[in-house]
């Protein structure tokens, strides 16, 4: 093989460089290619704790109160009656009173509930912007002393096959509340993304999870 003379080698090098630069420019300029978003992981941020200088004990760094929960949920707080909860909702559920509520059979004690579609619940979407299926809903669970749990049940549909991003956004808002005010848990059951937000003073009820009935 005959080696190319030096000037030609230099020209060929420039040509290769120019081609590479042009290809790079096309990639950069093509909006379809330039706008492929890299997947971004949402990072949920619980409230910080402050440790003493000897690193022996910690306490919550923020001074949150139930008012913060009420602000987040558009007026709901633990212990409200079914009628009061219904009164706060943008779209009222007709005929709500304790005697008329359905029983939640996953609990051993007398726990009752009603539910409302998430898309009718304005503030209870807690600022989430990602899509959810139309049949997603929120269950309001009561013991005799009042509201003790909000349970978000998120499902997909053809327009929004995966409600995971919305679940993460909603869960993230409650994770930012002190554990002593609202205990939030995220799990999956029966093809649903479920976020339970529970009154920490509700005793054994805090540990019970919903499972769909086998059909």
């Amino acid at each position: 093989m005959v080696a190319s003379p030096a000037p030609f080698r230099k020209q060929r090098g420039r040509l290769v460089l120019a081609l590479l630069a042009g290809w790079g420019g096309v990639l950069w300029a093509d909006p379809a290619l330039a706008q492929i978003p890299a997947p971004v992981l949402p990072i949920l941020t619980p409230p910080p704790a402050t440790w003493d200088h000897d690193l022996l004990s910690a306490r919550p760094a923020l001074g949150q109160t139930l008012t913060d929960l009420s602000v987040l949920t558009g007026g709901l707080t633990w212990g409200m009656t079914p009628v009061d909860v219904n009164g706060v909702l943008p779209v009222r559920v007709p005929g709500i009173n304790w005697a008329g509520l359905a029983s939640a059979t996953e609990y051993q004690s007398d726990i009752r509930y009603f539910w409302a579609r998430l898309d009718s619940l304005g503030a209870l979407r807690v600022g989430s912007t990602a899509c959810v299926g139309r049949n997603s809903y929120v269950v309001f669970l009561f013991q005799a002393s009042g509201l003790f749990r909000l349970s978000y049940r998120l499902t997909g549909d053809p327009a929004c096959p995966n409600p995971g991003a919305a679940a993460s956004q909603i869960f993230g808002r409650y994770v930012a509340m002190e554990w002593s005010l609202a205990q939030s848990i995220h799990y999956r059951a029966g093809g649903l993304d479920i976020i339970d937000v529970t009154d920490p003073t509700a005793g054994y009820l805090t540990t019970i999870r919903w499972q769909p009935r086998a059909r």
Binding site: L41, P42, I43, L44, T45, P46, P48, A49, T50, W51, D52, H53, L55, A58, A61, A167, S168, F171, V175, H186, Y187, R188, D193
Partner: peptide
């Protein structure tokens, strides 16, 4: 502030646990 990233592999939720330390 010391931050740890911890994950729940069942849901892929990722938490930033932040611990502040009081100064001497």
């Amino acid at each position: 502030t010391i931050g740890w990233l911890v994950a729940d592999t069942a849901t892929n939720d990722l938490f930033l646990a932040r611990m502040q330390v009081a100064p001497a």
